[in-house]
Write a protein that binds this DNA or RNA. Structure first.
Length: 106
DNA sequence: AAAATGACGGTGT
DNA sequence: TACACCGCCATTT
């Protein structure tokens, strides 16, 4: 486990119910603004869906990626996340971490 | 050490 | 909205 990867997972764990975050946003919060793609890999190799809610991580346009996208969508719907034209309505559901939740407080 | 990978993202058509 | 391109990047091979 590298520090970067750990930060990403830690952040993923604190995403509130009913909210989502984008790969790029996650990368930035973890300290590497342009590593969205790498973050995608971390989610793919997610060791445990139960402890790390990777289904709350979506693409920048609100679309759901990954082979298990159907399941992710389902879980999000259960949490009350709003969808618009087949995508997550980021305007409403995107998580905006405040200072208390920022990486600095980890 | 070097090349390949992929659950990205922005841009242009 | 949908697709094709192409640059990016940490991690894996």
């Amino acid at each position: 486990m590298t520090p970067f990867k750990e930060k990403v997972y830690t952040l993923t764990r604190i995403i509130p119910r009913g909210k989502v975050i984008t790969y790029a946003q996650l990368a930035a919060l973890a300290g590497v603004p342009r590593a969205a793609r790498a973050v995608g890999m971390f989610m793919k190799n997610n060791p445990d869906m139960r402890s790390i809610p990777c289904y709350r991580v979506v693409a920048s346009d609100g679309s759901i990626r990954g082979p298990n996208g159907a399941q992710k969508r389902e879980l999000l719907l259960l949490e009350g996340v709003k969808f618009k034209k087949g995508r997550v309505d980021l305007a409403i559901s995107q998580w905006q971490p405040d200072e208390m939740n920022s990486i600095e407080s980890l």
